[in-house]
Design a protein around this nucleic acid. Structure first.
Lengths: 347, 347
DNA sequence: TGTTCTACGTGCATCGTTCTATATTTCAGC
DNA sequence: GCTGAAATATAGAACGATGCACGTAGAACA
């Protein structure tokens, strides 16, 4: 009479739990959803039945009616180890909640593949975190369908979705200021051909700070795509010839490391002939052959704050929030003249 | 009478499509699933209605009855850019199918977090690809619940799940042979403290090849964990002292690059004082300051083959398959004595 | 003691598919 | 034109949760 018959031996359903705990199915559901109107005794009774039977809610069934407790995380490509920090931070932010993150890789550049977003919405995900996409129109459209937070998308004035960002403007300023403090004046920036707002912010910070310090005559932005050959050509152009630069701020470490390679092959000393500063402070910066000064943006913090905001959104917050993380500069040998190896290693 | 009333304006369901195409709901479902017993005219009629209405199947609803066309991809951590290739290959393998990959990051080391697997199974994923996990018992248990393929797990004799692997034994042999051909004899291996079968295979290949070439007196495996300080200590131990090595095979590029850093700081010339060979042939190998010889395992191919096999499995294949990809060595300056910079660059 | 209010529980319709069992159509062979 | 088999289409019952609308018990108040 208790159980609905010994039919299939397979899945433990909410019905089995209800029967075991001797309460209604709806009551179990309430406990599950931490909904209003459940007494403590009922809660503990149900919990112990769930544990005893090894019950696990069927996400698809939940998805048909309510939430799935699944959050979609869309990343552009995953080669930059910096993204691993975002993921880790995001997962940290989900710790202790019922939410699970599932990641999709977006193969297009500035937009988000419609198919990927659709597929996450089809799968009834409760909210989306999109990293690195910039198509504002598209993001607004997505935000109308699901709670949305973005990272790496400087449209901070919008009223539709939350943004979490590194202060990329400040990042470039930090790099310029540091180089100027070290006596460099002819400072160029190696940037990316893109419509990414991150890059635009970095370029803006670079230009503004050069102007502010009265160095506008040296300001020079060279843009390249990400192909190894393009990067190397750009680097050679900047590092050779009569107007070669004294110092170079690169939009990301991966590029900066290539520049170090090119400079080495050109027989240029770093930092004596040319100083180099990167961005992201990836682990490779620390290796002896690189020792690359770099701007650190805490991916972990970005991910964590994004998780927090996304959950708030799902729980009903309406007002938009825009959060900016301050970067910090990690100085290494690539940008500091006249430091001997020994004392530097002792630090 | 046709439509079920103008109730909610929201979602286009299979019912709306059926009404529009003037056929039964079941017929539409059959078209969707490419099931047997659908005439060409019916198929095209239904397809055009779907396109016209912009119908998208509701994955949660599908999950309640049949498949979700979602595949779970579990990765260990994502810092090694090599994983990006696996993902890309896997997605390539899904191109043109209805399947979508969703990725979960496993934070534990050799095992798979139970929570992650459970959550993918709760979400009714049709199959799982697990990369880098080694707990055979656990994998067998998982395979009993869902179609399973693994990458980076050398339990090729099992009869329960498919494996796709780099030939890690051969990878180490390639490295040793190359170094011996170049005149090196005292060749050590820098390995990892782990129970990963990948690493065990590489160690076996190294040891066997050293023995085969009569160099067993030089064979020496030093194991370290992944902490930067541990790696550097291990590198120093191998590179200094009376029994310092002439050549070093490192289990992965990231470690090899750190060794290059340590060697540089010790004032050792590469490759004249010590030759270094890495594994994975990540993009960093190519940079001038590294120019690291490395064993290339095609992550793309691994991912592609895994996707193919997983889908076959889902479609009902019972027999187990174990696929091995042959690695190839990419030679750069770090392991070849007496090559001038100029001719090498000209290659 | 009767009335109102609140907190807690419950029954049942519902979500959008799949799939079984059954009905209908088509057509070759006579 | 009839028969039966093969091919194609259909109705409707699941699947496992959620959450509305409602019922009930007991406390609070007069």
């Amino acid at each position: 009479m208790k159980s609905s018959g010994g039919g299939r031996p397979n899945r433990i359903t909410i019905r089995d739990v209800a029967a075991d705990a001797d309460v209604s199915v709806a009551a179990v559901s309430k406990v599950l959803r931490e909904a209003y109107g459940v007494s403590a005794s009922m809660r503990s009774k149900v919990h112990s039945s769930m544990a005893k039977l090894g019950y696990r809610p069927h996400t698809a069934a939940r998805g048909m009616r309510g939430q799935t407790f699944t959050l979609g995380l869309i990343l552009p490509d995953i080669r930059n180890p910096f993204f691993a920090d975002i993921i880790a931070g995001f997962q940290d932010g989900l710790e202790g909640t019922q939410y699970q993150a599932l990641i999709g890789i977006n193969r297009s550049t500035s937009m988000v593949e419609e198919g990927l977003v659709d597929s996450m919405i089809d799968r009834q995900m409760d909210g989306l975190l999109i990293v690195g996409a910039n198509d504002h129109e598209q993001l607004i459209a997505i935000a109308q369908r699901k709670p949305l937070v973005t990272i790496g998308n400087h449209h901070a004035s919008n009223e539709v979705y939350d943004t979490v960002n590194n202060d990329d403007d400040e990042a470039a300023r930090l790099a310029v200021r540091h180089l100027v403090d070290g006596g460099y004046r002819n400072i160029a920036m190696l940037s990316l051909i893109t419509d990414s707002t991150i890059i635009k912010e970095r370029e803006r910070g670079y230009t503004d700070e050069m102007n502010r310090l009265g160095l506008s005559r040296f300001a020079r932005i060279v843009r390249s795509d990400q192909l190894q050959s393009s990067v190397q050509n750009a680097a050679r152009a900047i590092l050779t010839g009569p107007d070669r630069t004294e110092a170079l701020f690169c939009w990301t470490d991966f590029i900066a490391l290539q520049v170090i390679g090119v400079a080495t092959e050109l027989g240029l000393g770093i930092p004596d002939d040319v100083a180099i500063v990167g961005h992201d402070n990836t682990m490779y910066c620390d290796f002896g052959q690189n020792s690359l000064t770099s701007v650190d943006q805490s991916g972990r913090l970005l991910g964590l704050e994004a998780a927090r905001r996304l959950i708030e959104r799902i729980k009903g917050r309406q007002a938009t929030e825009h959060y900016l993380v301050s970067p910090r500069l990690v100085v290494r040998r690539s940008s500091v003249r006249n430091i001997l190896t020994e004392p530097a290693a002792a630090l």
